[in-house]
Computed example of a mutant assay.
Amino acid sequence: MDSALVIGGTRFIGRHLVDDLLDHEYDVTIFNRGTHDDPFADDDRVDHVEGDRTNDTALEAAATTVDPDAVFDCVAYYPKDVRAATRIFGECESYVSVSSGAAYGREEIPKRETETPLEPCTAEQATDDSAETYGNRKAECDRAVFAAAEDGVRAMAVRPPIVYGPHDYTERLDWWIDRVNRFDRVVVPGDGTNVWHRVYVDDVASALRIVAEQGVAGEAYNVGDRRLVTLEEMVELIAESLATTVDVVHAGPRELAAGEIELDDYPLYREYPHVLSTAKLAALGWESTPLEEAMERAVDDHLESDRDGNENGPDREAEERVLGILETL
């Protein structure tokens, strides 16, 4: 394959995917509405087609104009999006949709692609735009991928958990980096052993390309850091990248109540472990970036940005009340 169309492509996963494709000598075209700054605007290696992916006529025009070998769908949030794209790009060599670990409908460790059931999705959920139905919609998007494959389309899905790294506009990890960078005492909810699988964004990008090149039609592939860390270990990795040390202070529901904080007010906290098996993707030759290297890049990008993630978690004043209570125990 020589040419690629990236639906999305300028914000986070898509941005890193474009870089990865360029590094592997693809001719790349971005298809989006042009509502966000384009980091590739001055890069003559990247073409840009403006259009709304929810507009089938615009997608059909892009298919005719670009005639890509591979299509990467970074912004398929509704089942109808996948159904339209797999129909329009059905003659391409590959179509890869960015799915999510949230598509899984049962809590088990680890979640495996062909064993763990997916979330159900009603007709109402399929068109809903709330966060509560995100997993349902992603699961139905995957079922649309599988259906397209049964009709002869080389369609596949890649399921990441929480994605982190440079240019992460969600600022979930930024909240933690900011805490470690500014304070010598960091509150970690619970006992610090919470595990929520994460994945470095460059590894998602390479996974998408590898699946397009080597994946099997009708299959989904989990992608995630090959070595998982607890929330406390993540804080320690951040501190190492900042060349600093922090005093981790554990706080349970009782202690957090002093600041009117709940456990799940903290970004990247999840009561039940969320772990994805990545063996299927690794069998294609995919490798993940060492955690220390990935975190260092994420921290460097944070320091160069104006992101602080403050809207994602408890404010420091509330945490100080918790710390005050803990000092008296």
Rank of each mutant, 00 (worst) to 15 (best):
Y95Q: 03
S130F: 07
Y164E: 08
I7H: 03
E115T: 09
V153T: 12
D174S: 12
G152E: 06
I238Q: 11
V46H: 02
T244N: 11
V186D: 00
D308A: 07
S288I: 12
D308T: 15
T29V: 13
V246N: 06
G215V: 04
P68S: 11
D128G: 09
A123P: 05
A258Q: 08
H36P: 01
E108T: 06
R112Y: 08
E236V: 11
E327H: 09
V201D: 04
Y169E: 10
T114P: 07
D168C: 13
T10I: 10
V18E: 06
S94A: 06
I261N: 02
Y169S: 11
G218R: 09
G215R: 01
G90D: 06
G215E: 01
G135P: 04
W196V: 05
K280N: 07
D168Q: 11
R297V: 09
H167C: 07
I109G: 06
E255F: 15
T170A: 11
S277F: 08
R316C: 10
L303F: 08
S277V: 07
V216K: 03
P161G: 02
V49N: 12
A102L: 00
A294R: 01
I109K: 05
L263I: 02
V235T: 06
S288F: 08
M234A: 14
S206W: 02
Y26W: 02
D38N: 15
A294I: 00
M156N: 01
S100C: 02
P160C: 09
N194S: 13
R143G: 12
V199N: 01
I177Y: 08
D315N: 07
K111G: 00
A212M: 04
E119H: 11
P160V: 03
R87E: 03
L242N: 06
P160N: 09
A131D: 09
A257F: 10
V96H: 00
D128W: 07
N222H: 14
D202R: 03
T289M: 06
T114Y: 02
A149R: 04
V187W: 15
A123I: 14
L326M: 08
A243H: 15
T86W: 03
L173S: 04
A294C: 05
V195Q: 02
V163A: 02
D19G: 08
V195D: 03
P314I: 03
A84L: 11
H274M: 15
S305Y: 11
D81V: 05
A147K: 04
T64G: 12
T57M: 14
A62R: 06
Y272F: 15
Y95S: 01
L231E: 02
D306A: 11
L21I: 15
T328V: 14
A243T: 07
Y200P: 05
S97R: 00
V153E: 05
T193C: 13
V201E: 01
A217N: 10
D151Q: 10
T29N: 02
A207V: 05
D308S: 13
E150P: 05
D44K: 11
P110S: 02
G309D: 13
V18T: 13
E271N: 13
A212D: 04
E124S: 02
Y269M: 01
S288Q: 11
P290G: 07
S305N: 14
D56C: 07
T54A: 03
V96E: 00
H274V: 11
R297N: 10
A149L: 08
V75L: 06
I261T: 09
M234S: 04
G14V: 04
V145H: 05
D42F: 12
